[in-house]
Design a protein around this nucleic acid. Sequence first.
RNA 1: UGGGGUAUCGUCCAACGGCAGGACUCUGGUUUUUGGUACCAGCUACCUAGGUUCGAAUCCUAGUACCCCAG
Length: 365
Amino acid sequence: MAAMSGGVDSSVCALLLQRAGCDVRGATMVLRDAAVPVAGAGPHGAACDVAPCGSSRDVEDARAVCRRLGIPHDAFDLRSRFDAAVIRPFCDAYLAGRTPNPCIDCNRHLKFEALQQRRRELGLQYVATGHYARRRWNEASGRWQLLRALDTAKDQSYVLYHLTQDTLAHMLFPLGGLTKDEVRALARDHGFVTADKPESQDICFVPDGDYAGFIEGYCGDASAFAAGEIVNREGRVLGEHGGLVHYTIGQRKGIGVAASEPLYVVEKDVAANRLVVGFKDELESRGVVARDVNLVSGDALDGRRHVQVKTHYRQRPVDAVAQQTGPDELTVTFDEPQRPAAPGQAVVIYDGEVVLGGGTAVRTF
RNA sequence: UGGGGUAUCGUCCAACGGCAGGACUCUGGUUUUUGGUACCAGCUACCUAGGUUCGAAUCCUAGUACCCCAG
């Protein structure tokens, strides 16, 4: 079963499986939007909104690619699950002052849990996705390992740290050894309608980028939208903010306070509804504590382990020491001070090309 | 009120009498399957009224506002 988002990567994913001689069927998750498109509907693209990920337009595109490949295509209505597993937690996290990563939740609960469930129901062997990542069987440990993509510029293993051994055993990542250029070239060669679709960006269910407005519309009024003071580390009032929901740790734009140098958010004081800001040199962090930990490649962490860590999707991994500090708690100490991670973000640790695992940042130090 | 000082983008500061420049904010763009970051670009100002001068942000006079010291 090839998970097809309606983008170029998953289109090529299906193509490569077919080329490899697999018996492929495409599957698209309908995550939001109005109607589930009816099979055989007219040509795609007629006055559709440009919307990434799970919209009716994407379902049409995925279906068109499957038709071209001559493989069956199914659309699964996962809208209510998307709401419960992604949107709701996303809003709750923001309202509590954290900075969630909805793409991680979506991968975890929909692309993997829900699609694997479908796979079992259909009696199929694998779910394949268009992620730029690789897996490898480790003879020594008798476990599957999750690896970074060969094209490190496009590597997406960061969003997969939560995979289980059982899921990994039934996953394929056909794009893990390719570059984006190669993938696009393949798509063009095969005349896929998705060949030149832009890279997805922004939160798929908030296409205009106004996530705060979305949360307000979804959850109604809340204290996270209340105006409050902007202060520096010494407690001096520098201005007023328009609700803590608009800010995240490390943020520079949108503070609205002019100073000799740029100011960054160094802390969100939810209890006092105050935004604490400081200069760049006040944005130093020695490490981060993560919960909801998953060690995807199976290795337990014995004592202190030298690793590389990312606290953001597009960060280059930095050297650090990771240590299990509780039954479900991981403490990562950077070798050199870093920009702080925002609570709610994913902390992912690597040993070279192997993804060891990760968790959700709960606090920094 | 007596003496002194300062008035320039939204903010903070520059500019020998010769096209008003920078930092920050803001806006836009690039990058990006999250928020952010980073990078690039752009907008906006000489307190008012006179005078001197070929030419005034700059020199002079008056007004206005603010600051400091005297109270």
